[in-house]
C-alpha cells in the first residue's frame, strides 16, 4: 500500500506522463514543422518531469519497483492523473486550449511546491518551473492568436473551451492525499491557487475574445483513478512495448 505522500507524488507523475503522451501523439502530425517540433519539445519536458517523480517514488518504495514499473505496468484505475490531461488532442486548437488550462495550473502548482518542505519535490519543482514557464508562454500566446484570429480559428477555440471547461474544476478539488500533502507542508497553502488560475485564464480568454461557458457541474474522478473512456486507449499505446516484451530496455 502506498501512503498519502507516495500517492501525491504518483499523481504529479501521472499528470506529467499522460499529458506528455498525449502531446507526443502530435509527433509527425503537427500543422507545420515548427509547431510539430514545439509540441514534441513540450512532450519531452513533461515525460522528463514524470521520470523525476517516478524515480523519487522508486527510491521511497524500497520494494524493488523501478520507474518503468510505475509508468508502464499499472492498470487504468491505478493512474491518478486528472481528467483534463487525458482528453483527446482534437484539432490543434483543442490541444492548445487543454495545454493552456493545464499550464496555468501547473505553473502555479509548481511555484507552491517549490516552497514546500520536501527537499526532493522542491528541487524537481524548481527545475520544472523553467520548462513550464515556457509552456505557459507558448500556449497563452497561441490561445490569443487562435481566438483573435479568423472566424474559423475563433469558433474552433471556443468549441474547445466549451468542451474542456468541465474538466477544470477537478484541478482544485483536493483529494485526501492532496489534503495531507497540504497539511504536511509539502504543497503549502494553495488557498489562492484557484482564484489566481481563474484570473489568468479569464484575462487571456478575454484578450482572445473567447467566452467562459456557464456549466452547472464539473466532471471529476481522475485523481482518484476514475477515468474517462479515453484513458484505456492511451495506456494501450503507452504500455504496448512493456506488455509485449516485459523488461525491455533501450
Amino acid at each position: 500500500m502506498m501512503d498519502s505522500k507516495q500517492k501525491y507524488i504518483l499523481h504529479l507523475a501521472d499528470n506529467a506522463l499522460i499529458l506528455g503522451q498525449r502531446i507526443a501523439e502530435w509527433c509527425g502530425h503537427g500543422p507545420v514543422l515548427e509547431q510539430d517540433i514545439a509540441l514534441t519539445n513540450m512532450s519531452l519536458d513533461l515525460i522528463g518531469q514524470s521520470r523525476l517523480y517516478y524515480q523519487y517514488l522508486a527510491d521511497l518504495g524500497g520494494n524493488g519497483k523501478t520507474e518503468d514499473d510505475f509508468a508502464f505496468m499499472r492498470k487504468e484505475h491505478e493512474y491518478l492523473n486528472c481528467l483534463l490531461v487525458e482528453q483527446p488532442n482534437g484539432d490543434f486548437g483543442k490541444t492548445i486550449v487543454r495545454q493552456f488550462f493545464y499550464d496555468v495550473f501547473h505553473f502555479l502548482q509548481l511555484e507552491l511546491l517549490s516552497r514546500g518542505n520536501d527537499e526532493q519535490l522542491t528541487a524537481i519543482a524548481l527545475k520544472s518551473l523553467k520548462e513550464v514557464k515556457y509552456h505557459l508562454n507558448y500556449s497563452s500566446k497561441w490561445v490569443v492568436r487562435l481566438g483573435d484570429g479568423t472566424e474559423e480559428s475563433n469558433a474552433r477555440a471556443q468549441k474547445a473551451v466549451n468542451t474542456l471547461w468541465k474538466y477544470t474544476g477537478e484541478l482544485f478539488e483536493w483529494t485526501e492525499y492532496e489534503k495531507e500533502a497540504i497539511a504536511a507542508g509539502i504543497f503549502p497553502e494553495p488557498d489562492k491557487l484557484e482564484n489566481e488560475w481563474a484570473n489568468k485564464v479569464h484575462q487571456v480568454l478575454d484578450e482572445a475574445h473567447l467566452q467562459v461557458p456557464e456549466l452547472p457541474y464539473m466532471q471529476t474522478g481522475g485523481k482518484n483513478g476514475r477515468h474517462t473512456e479515453h484513458m484505456g486507449y492511451i495506456l494501450t499505446e503507452l504500455q504496448y512495448m512493456q506488455r509485449a516484451y516485459p523488461g525491455l530496455e533501450w
Partner: peptide, 14 residues
Amino acid sequence: ASDPQMAIQNARDV
C-alpha cells in the same frame, strides 16, 4: 511564423 513573438518561440524550439 505569423508574428515576431512566434518566430522567437519557433526559433527556440527549432
